[in-house]
């Protein structure tokens, strides 16, 4: 019962996040670059439900615009991570030998670089930017998906339907695409939801540090980084962006957990 509720809560929060991001892309109550210093640091009011920031911009508008940025960065990073990681993992599982060893070594290497360090290196070389964040988070995601895809595909390599595919004259790629991917796809999707939550957190941290989204782009993390100095004067400037991050991440986590419970019959007993 509680699990069901959690699943629907996760779905609801995630849908709200996506809808807000879509809406924020085409319309916000106020323009997000409408600087009005006289109206700065206003507490929440009917005119500005979440108050205004240190430059007098409407917080609600910034939060709506930030939803899109955060989601886009996170989704791009996870998509890139899965796009490189899943083929590598399948390759390792089906080729074995040197290919397997190479993929596992590379994934060890990539895991040794936390996203923050990668972003710092790229920022030091090319200057900070949103692409730094995407690349850095993606690099950390590649081994996660490679290892998962490998471990999911490995038990399938000897299974009858895969062998039958070979016998039917399909080449290895055909067998993987037709027979293996559909079998591992569902758990990969679950992992993607959970990685998306991690990516949102990572994007927020990087943007907070100034390594991610740059002005004039709106981002929850960057809002926090810029508003921190003013938290004593107006706590709402640090409260709302943080709450937005918590709700978005929690929504994705709950959705991922819920999907996993539904897909994995072993977890059903006693629920």
């Amino acid at each position: 019962m509680a699990r069901r509720l959690a699943f629907w809560l996760g779905g609801g929060l995630t849908s709200a996040l996506v809808l807000t991001a879509l809406l924020g892309a085409v319309w916000t109550p106020y323009p997000i670059d409408a600087v009005a210093v006289v109206e700065r640091l206003q507490a929440p009011s009917p005119l500005h439900p979440f108050g205004t920031d240190q430059l007098g911009r409407d917080m609600l508008s910034l939060l709506m615009a930030g939803a899109g940025t955060s989601l886009l960065v996170a989704a791009a990073a996870v998509a890139a991570g899965a796009g490189f990681g899943v083929p590598l993992g399948l390759l390792a599982a089906f080729r074995g030998g040197v290919a397997d060893e190479a993929v596992m070594r590379l994934s060890d290497l990539a895991l040794a670089f936390p996203a923050l360090l990668t972003a710092a290196m790229i920022a030091a070389t090319y200057g900070p930017g949103v692409l730094d964040a995407v690349v850095a988070i993606a690099i950390f995601n590649v081994p996660v998906f490679a290892r998962l895809a490998r471990s999911l595909a490995l038990p399938l390599t000897g299974r009858a339907f895969v062998q039958a595919g070979y016998l039917a004259g399909k080449d290895a790629l055909g067998v993987v695409v037709v027979h293996v991917l559909p079998n591992v796809a569902s758990l990969l999707v679950v992992q993607a939801a959970i990685q998306l939550a991690f990516a949102l957190l990572a994007e927020a941290s990087l943007s907070y540090l100034g390594l991610g989204v740059q002005p004039p782009g709106a981002s929850w993390g960057r809002m926090l980084g810029e508003a921190q100095t003013y938290m004593r004067l107006a706590p709402h400037v640090v409260l709302f962006p943080g709450l937005a991050i918590v709700l978005a991440v929690m929504g994705l986590n709950l959705l991922g957990d819920g999907l996993r419970d539904r897909l994995d019959p072993r977890l059903w007993e006693g629920s």
Binding site: A6, A197, L201, A204, S205, Y208, G221, L224, Q228, M231, R232, P235, V238, L239, P241, G242, I245, V246, L247, V249, M250, N253, L254
Partner: peptide
């Protein structure tokens, strides 16, 4: 715990110091 894993530690740091 579900809420806890969703909280970015740098934001928690800001709120705790506040």
């Amino acid at each position: 715990a579900q809420v806890g894993i969703a909280v970015p530690s740098f934001w928690l740091a800001i709120m705790l110091s506040l």
